[in-house]
């Protein structure tokens, strides 16, 4: 009787202890399996910097390439209003046109960048960049185009 009580008591204590430890650990590794949403992103430094922090690596690289190669016709903001646009007919594509851009697959965009308008039955005024830009770089540009017209819009 006494021994039974002791066993019950001890198992109870043990369970309580276990729970305590579990809780303590749990505080360090919070819900959803320990992913800390608030701290995983690189902490914003107290100094304000350019909006590079809002772009992914691929988008940033894409932006840089876009400004060098695409901006003259498609415009710095991708609205199809670069300074050379008014010499062209048909006009360069407006990349902020969500409905149009979101209907295009990555593969199709990649084809257009690499083979130009002539490769996808569009205007020959869009040059082919396959000989100039490497596959990686073309992918960066697509990533930036996706940033200009996010699919969730």
């Amino acid at each position: 009787m006494r021994a039974g009580g002791l066993a019950r008591q001890s198992s109870f204590t043990f369970l309580a202890l276990l729970l305590l430890i579990a809780c303590a650990r749990h505080d360090d590794a919070p819900e959803n399996g320990g992913v800390r949403q608030d701290t995983l992103e690189p902490s914003s430094s107290s100094v304000s910097t350019a909006d590079v922090a809002n772009l992914t690596y691929e988008q940033r690289q894409g932006q840089h390439l876009f400004l060098k190669y695409c901006q003259v016709c498609h415009g710095a903001n991708g609205r199809g209003d670069g300074f050379n646009a008014f010499n062209l007919s048909p006009k360069p594509r407006d990349f902020t046109d969500h409905r149009y851009m979101n209907a295009l697959s990555d593969a199709r965009l990649l084809e257009t960048v690499s083979q130009g308008g002539k490769g996808v039955n569009k205007s020959v005024l869009m040059p082919s960049w396959g000989g100039r830009l490497r596959k990686n770089e073309q992918g960066y540009i697509i990533a930036y185009l996706r940033y200009l017209a996010p699919s969730s819009h």
């Binding site: 003259v72 016709c73 300074f83 050379n84 010499n87 062209l88 130009g116 308008g117 002539k118 205007s123 020959v124 005024l125 869009m126 040059p127 082919s128």
Partner: peptide, 20 residues
């Protein structure tokens, strides 16, 4: 020049074409 590679997108001939 005109129909395959679209050079006129960037280069002018006789005041027709781009400025790049």
């Amino acid at each position: 020049y005109y129909e395959k590679h679209g050079c006129q997108a960037c280069h002018q001939i006789n005041l027709k074409g781009g400025y790049v």
